[in-house]
Computed example of a mutant assay.
Amino acid sequence: MKHSIQSFLFLSVAVLLVSCSGGSFQKTKSGLMYKIIADGKGAALKPGNYVKFHVVVKQKDSVTYNSFGKIPAFTMVDSVGRPYDISEILPKMKEGDSAVVIQLADSIAKQQMGQMPPGLKKGDKITISFRIVKVMTDLSVAQADFQKEMDDMKAREIKDLESYIKSKNINAIKTDKGVFVEIINPGTGAKPDSGKQVSVMYTGTNLEGKKFDSNVDTAFKHPEPLKFVIGQMGMIPGFEEAVKQLLKGGKAKAYIPSMMGYGMQGSPPMIKPYETLVFEMELVDVTDAPKQTAPILPPATGGGQNQ
């Protein structure tokens, strides 16, 4: 079944890219080149609609992003659209339609006051192929749809990571939030409860072992312990979840699905979209959080004060 789904997704992407490869392009007012492959069945998109779509992005003939099999993109239709952006052509489309747009790096730089997009140089282009899969008229419905896509993706990632953990015979516990923690030393000191400040030494890698950050490896040039307060969202959720499984002095190796990490955006260039993260960590200290000082306000003036 899994192979059949993967084959269907591959076929969907291939059909979308091939169908968008031939024929002539049109241009929007801003100069964006585009071509619409009409499905002819769905309702026309109107300003104020919320659109769910799958997208494939290519830079210099290499696929850099592909939402098929992952979380679709969502956006709102307006009557004009942002200059030199796919939103310019959405009012011309219907539910079920596909399209391809081509953005030139030089033109993007002009839109950004001469700043060239990361990783591109003069003469390069970005090709964006997408398919409208659902149109909604109510924001709350669109938000619920997006949340369901997020929840479904997280469930798939946890299931895949659980299979990986089992295949590697890793002795890890699964937390309620879907982080897998291999306890090396549970520690014997204070517990990192909510509101406590923790100090952590860590090394982060992907599943293949490639390092993306560390305060243990001096090559990353920040050897000081990482400090943050539990419960204040100072770290990605999966990292905090793993730290909470330890006591002061404890050590662990945490396996974090992307939806508990950097998710669909990743953290370029080191962390890819939807990338599972692995952290070796040591909880070196647990203390009270620093007291927050009240801001110093300027003295009041006027307003009935005696002069």
Rank of each mutant, 00 (worst) to 15 (best):
D160R: 10
M201F: 05
A289E: 14
D85G: 12
I86Q: 02
T287R: 09
G209C: 00
Y202P: 08
K92P: 11
Q232M: 14
G304N: 00
G234H: 15
L246I: 12
I5C: 01
V77W: 06
A242R: 11
C20Y: 04
G23P: 13
Q115R: 10
A99M: 00
Q6T: 00
Q103A: 01
V179L: 13
L246N: 12
I271D: 12
N171I: 12
I173K: 14
G187T: 12
D145P: 10
S199A: 07
I271C: 10
A155W: 11
V57L: 09
Y84P: 04
G23Y: 15
Q307A: 00
L283D: 06
G187C: 07
K291V: 06
M116I: 07
L32C: 02
G187Y: 07
M113N: 10
D97Y: 05
Y65D: 09
K166N: 06
H222C: 07
K159S: 08
R82V: 14
F10E: 00
I126Q: 05
A294H: 09
K148N: 08
D145F: 12
F53R: 15
K251F: 12
P268N: 15
L11A: 07
K58S: 03
F212T: 06
M235L: 15
G123R: 12
P72S: 11
K177A: 14
P91L: 13
K248M: 11
K154Q: 13
S98T: 11
V18A: 11
L16D: 02
Y164H: 08
F10C: 01
D124M: 08
V15S: 09
K125G: 14
G81P: 14
K210F: 02
G96H: 04
V56A: 09
T218K: 03
L246C: 11
A142T: 10
Q26N: 14
I296S: 11
P269M: 15
L246V: 14
V13M: 07
M264N: 11
A190N: 10
S258R: 10
